[in-house]
Amino acid sequence: MTSRVMAEFDLLLPYSVSEAVTLLASHGDKAAVLAGGTDLLVALKFDYAVENIISLAQVPGLDKLTYDPEGGLTIGARVTLVDILKSADVKEHYPALWQAAKVFATPQLRNTATVLGNILRASPAGDCSLALYALGGTLTLESASGRREVDLDDFWLSYGVTARKNDELAIALQVPAPQAGQKSAFRRMTRVTEDLSKLNAAVCLQMDGDKCLSARVAMGCVGPTLVRLPKVEKILRQAGITPDLLQEISDTVASEIAPIDDIRSSADYRLKVAGVLVKRVIMLALNGGNDQ
């Protein structure tokens, strides 16, 4: 049951990353980081209480979204969904991420919600997280004792739980530069247009002409965390993408996922259509973002 009244907390406003990590070091598990707040405020109005909220609003340098053909894409901790949508580089080189941002939430939400907030929330339905999972990336975490990097593949541990320690601030996500022939796409299924996903899928294919050299295929809403589909990735490796191959993939998907019944859909339905969704997201990647 939500409340019109939030639990009391102190709002801390650091003016630099070092101030922020100092605050995190002293408050530890009694603090939460506030980026766009679109997850955190929902939780606070529900039943979540925390003594300190450390806002990133005044921390400079975290809002950078940069692309470099060699080094790839860097997404700062305060980069919003609207920033992603406005970036021609993202649209061209990381279509999966752009497509996820495009259907994400509502215009108001996209103005404030951040990409890193989506990753840190560790929801098994996270749309941008899923696109980035397929694209691959490394998260930079900083604490008073230094920086470390964590591969997204190792970041989500279980429902809502990540490898981040509670004195760490996520600074940025690094996504590798695409190689020639890289194609990616994202697709989701919802109950109505503006909704959380009931099933989502993203792929990143390294293509050489009609042949797929390697692939990363990820799905959401089919387990406690986002998952990759190793069998499907294996089928795609060094394979020509034919209707028969797509059918084989479609038939394989169900064996790699463990969805549950919930209010958004049923396990049975998800098992039935997951293969269709994966098949379609592959087609979408190959068609450069155009359906059919």
């Binding site: 939500t2 109950r191 109505v192 247009t193 503006e194 909704d195 959380l196 209010i263 958004r264």
Partner: peptide, 16 residues
């Protein structure tokens, strides 16, 4: 009741 809220009770919105 499992969906006495707008997160999980889904109406048609303008974009639908």
């Amino acid at each position: 009741c499992l969906n006495n809220n707008f997160t999980d009770y889904k109406m048609f919105g303008p974009s639908d």
